[in-house]
Every structure is written in structure tokens, then in C-alpha cells.
């Protein structure tokens, strides 16, 4: 149990510390693919350090909620990162929140971000909040349905049990997970504000969603939000790996497997980041009105995955 708690803390800390690195890697790959010279992989850390050192500038009209929200969002993402098995399956915290609660954590963070965006009362803030909620009201149930497909296979909504069933039991092919994987990719793209739903690199009023919400933040608050965004990307990548490529995650009590798990994880994340950058480079940003259609498709694909499970696998 003690080893488990230590492992849990180590894993969570590792996720928090390494998350900006993944962000740096994705940015680097994207720059290479677009023929630009890439920023160093540690650029996100430098940005965070710079932001933490600055004086925070806050609008006159801000309420305490505005200053509280970044901490809340960061705490939610840290908890989420702690629940998802990255290196080992033995997570003493994970019974506290299963996959449904995980969706709840993401939703909690999002609602606080949207409320904080509306707090100042600027035109862009409310616009961003509205668009974010528009994206999320379809992405959230879709994510839940993806999890349900995996839960139906493994008869559990606990992530360690799901990973255990998929990675450590007898190998089987689950067609329903093919649907779930496609839906999951679409959801991750939308939830992490990437192309084709959002573009993290612009401040163009016609298209921005996430950036519009955090326009009023500066210095340490902005740093925390940026870090939480990196952590979210990391958590989603870890989730995708845990659901669809779980091989290599150390099982219950297999401490000797940890170095191998670390290598496997690093390899999968590097590959995943590169694939994300590639897909972002080859696709075009859709118009905002098409975003509900994109996400509606993801939602229905996820439902279809559940259906396929009932049809082919029971």
C-alpha cells in the first residue's frame, strides 16, 4: 500500500513536470512539418518561468472568482493526471474517481474556465465561453460514450481494471474499440483546442475559442492555465494510450516492469505527439458552424461503438 501511494505520488508529479515537455515536442514536430525552424523542446518551461516572474495585471471589474479559477483548473487537471495509469496500474487514488468522475473533473475545470472568461465582461470573453460550452456539450457525452464502450468490455468503470483487462488478459480484438478510437481522436482534438476545431496559435476573432477565454489572464494566472492546458494534453494522450495501446503499462505489483514501462510510455508519447502534429498539419481548420457537426459525428461514432459492442462482442 505504501509503495502504491509513493508510486501514485511519483506518477502524478512526473505527469505534472513532463506535461510541458510533450507540448514542446508537439510544437517542435509541427514546426518541422511546416518547414519552419523549431523552437527548443524546453520552450514551454521557459515561457512558464517568464510568466511566473511577472506582475499579474487584473481588470478592475474582476471578481474573486477570476483569481480563484486558475488554481481550481490546475488542481482539477492534476487530479485527472493522477487517476490515469501512465506507468503503473497500481494507483491507490483511482478508486476515488472512475471514468465517469474523470469526465466530471474535466467538466468542472471547463465550467470554471468559462465562468472566469465571462467574469470580466468583455466581448471576447463571453464569446469564448459560449463557443467553449458549445464544443463541450457534444464532446463531453461523446467522451463518456467512448469510456462506456471500454467499460462494457471490461465490466468496470475503473481505469486500472480497464487497462488490466485490455493489456494483461488474453489478447482479443474488439471492433467496437475501432469506433471508439476514431471518436476519441476527434474529441481529444476538440477538447485540447487543436486544429480542426480550434487553433492554439492564433488570436483571430472569427476562429478562436480557447484563447478568447484566457485573453484577460496574465502572469502567474496565465502560467497556471497554460500549464493546466499542457497537463490536459498529457492526460488525454495518456488516456488514449491506456485505452487503445495499453501494452507496456506495469501491472499490479510488477515493480520490476517500471523501467520498461517508462521507456514504452516515452516512446508512445513521442509517437503520439508526432502523429498529432502530423494530423494537425494536414487538416484545415473547419468553420465554427461546422464544429458542432464534427463533434456530433464524434458523438454518434462513440454511440455506434457501444452498439457494435452489443452486436459483435456479447
Amino acid at each position: 500500500m505504501q509503495a502504491g501511494i509513493l508510486l501514485q505520488l511519483a506518477q502524478t508529479l512526473l505527469a505534472i513536470l513532463l506535461a510541458p515537455l510533450l507540448m514542446g515536442w508537439v510544437n517542435q514536430c509541427r514546426a518541422w512539418l511546416q518547414g519552419r525552424s523549431a523552437p527548443p523542446i524546453t520552450q514551454p518551461y521557459r515561457t512558464l518561468r517568464k510568466l511566473f516572474h511577472k506582475d499579474a495585471v487584473i481588470a478592475h471589474t474582476a471578481s474573486p472568482l477570476f483569481r480563484f479559477a486558475p488554481y481550481m483548473i490546475f488542481a482539477c487537471m492534476a487530479l485527472a493526471a493522477g487517476i490515469v495509469p501512465t506507468l503503473a496500474n497500481d494507483l491507490p487514488f483511482s478508486p476515488a474517481a472512475d471514468v465517469i468522475a474523470l469526465v466530471g473533473i474535466f467538466a468542472l475545470a471547463r465550467v470554471f474556465l468559462a465562468l472566469a472568461a465571462m467574469d470580466i465582461g468583455t466581448s471576447f470573453g463571453t464569446l469564448g465561453a459560449r463557443r467553449e460550452m458549445l464544443v463541450s456539450f457534444l464532446a463531453e457525452p461523446a467522451l463518456l460514450m467512448v469510456f462506456f464502450t471500454a467499460s462494457l468490455i471490461s465490466q468496470s468503470t475503473e481505469l486500472p481494471v480497464i487497462v488490466d483487462t485490455l493489456a494483461h488478459q488474453e489478447f482479443a480484438i474488439y471492433p467496437s474499440l475501432a469506433f471508439a478510437a476514431v471518436a476519441f481522436w476527434m474529441i481529444s482534438v476538440a477538447e485540447n483546442a487543436r486544429i480542426p476545431v480550434d487553433n492554439p496559435a492564433t488570436h483571430l476573432e472569427l476562429t478562436m475559442i480557447h484563447e478568447a477565454m484566457i485573453l484577460e489572464y496574465s502572469a502567474r494566472h496565465l502560467a497556471l492555465i497554460e500549464w493546466a492546458v499542457a497537463l490536459k494534453l498529457f492526460t488525454y494522450s495518456a488516456l488514449g494510450i491506456a485505452l487503445f495501446l495499453p501494452w507496456g503499462i506495469a501491472g499490479q505489483g510488477e515493480l520490476g516492469m517500471l523501467p520498461l514501462a517508462l521507456v514504452a510510455m516515452a516512446g508512445k508519447l513521442l509517437l503520439g505527439g508526432a502523429v498529432l502534429a502530423f494530423l494537425e498539419t494536414v487538416s484545415a481548420k473547419v468553420r465554427l458552424f461546422r464544429a458542432p457537426e464534427f463533434l456530433g459525428t464524434a458523438f454518434l461514432l462513440a454511440v455506434l461503438g457501444m452498439l457494435i459492442h452489443f452486436l459483435l462482442e456479447v
Binding site: D55, A56, V57, I58, A59, H60, T61, I120, G121, T122, S123, F124, G125, H203, E205, L215, E216
Partner: peptide, 12 residues
């Protein structure tokens, strides 16, 4: 440290 100012809003 905190400074208060008018909202930025992309400079509009």
C-alpha cells in the same frame, strides 16, 4: 503582486 487596470480585450 497584482496590478489593476482596464480590461485588455485584444486592445479593442
Amino acid at each position: 503582486r497584482v496590478r489593476r487596470s482596464a480590461p485588455w480585450d485584444c486592445g479593442y
